[in-house]
Write a protein that binds this DNA or RNA. Sequence first.
DNA 1: CTATCTGCAAACGTTTTGCATAACA
DNA 2: TGTTATGCAAAACGTTTGCAGATAG
Lengths: 135, 135
Amino acid sequence: MNIILGMRMTAQRRAVLALIEAEPKRHWSAEEVAEALRAEGVRIGVATVYRALAALEAEGHLVSVQWHGKRRYESAQKAHHDHLVCERCGRVEEFCDPAIEEKQEKAARARGFRLTGHQLVLFGICAACQEGEGA
Amino acid sequence: MNIILGMRMTAQRRAVLALIEAEPKRHWSAEEVAEALRAEGVRIGVATVYRALAALEAEGHLVSVQWHGKRRYESAQKAHHDHLVCERCGRVEEFCDPAIEEKQEKAARARGFRLTGHQLVLFGICAACQEGEGA
DNA sequence: CTATCTGCAAACGTTTTGCATAACA
DNA sequence: TGTTATGCAAAACGTTTGCAGATAG
């Protein structure tokens, strides 16, 4: 998707998008984006990062999820998926279950809602963190 | 569940719990709880409300979900369910699909995770808000 | 009696906003 | 060239914390 309609593609926004698309496994918070860009020499303020992330999401280049009170962004080029977060180490796994998606759609329709989005995050303890757990 | 182990059941905590259990359809934010209690003459500070909500959840009297960046509480006496929120008017419907629950459990197990919790919130436009929508 | 809870106010982390300047199209 | 984006700093927002005094058990 390369069509830009409602926004200007500035150097900063290009940098934000490039950064996120370069590391498709990461789920970036605004602060992490700002820090990473500054580390590679891009001069950018936090406010600009927040506005860039919102604009890029509105244009369909990024998608976001929120967990632990922080919004996180990733590329919209990836297939749709949900998240599984380790409560101990923060490790994030992605998963997609078409049956869950369909059931969600049905639950909404059955109550007269037109579905516009959903947030599904599973919390747990990953295999590595389970080793060496008492009892 | 009336067993209290780790906390003192003070007047304020009793008031918070009574308020929430009295209106089982509502999903209370801390600020709403504080406001409602003050309206009925209970003298209580916000910090106390936050601490009471956390304590009551830890004791199993309340459960919470987060959406739109705000944690919301309801009685734990209700059967487990997830939420469907209207983006337009804020109306909240509850639903429960055992098949979804089971698939979540499976998705976690398949990746070596021990599931400890989940957050599932569906967003949409409710029937009432769909009437009189353009196009 | 004393560990726990309270209210207040100050601090927190994340996100948003106002404004003068810069830069894309 | 005019509209939109930027950087900074200040403020907003929900939430947490430190502390001195109050209270449950």
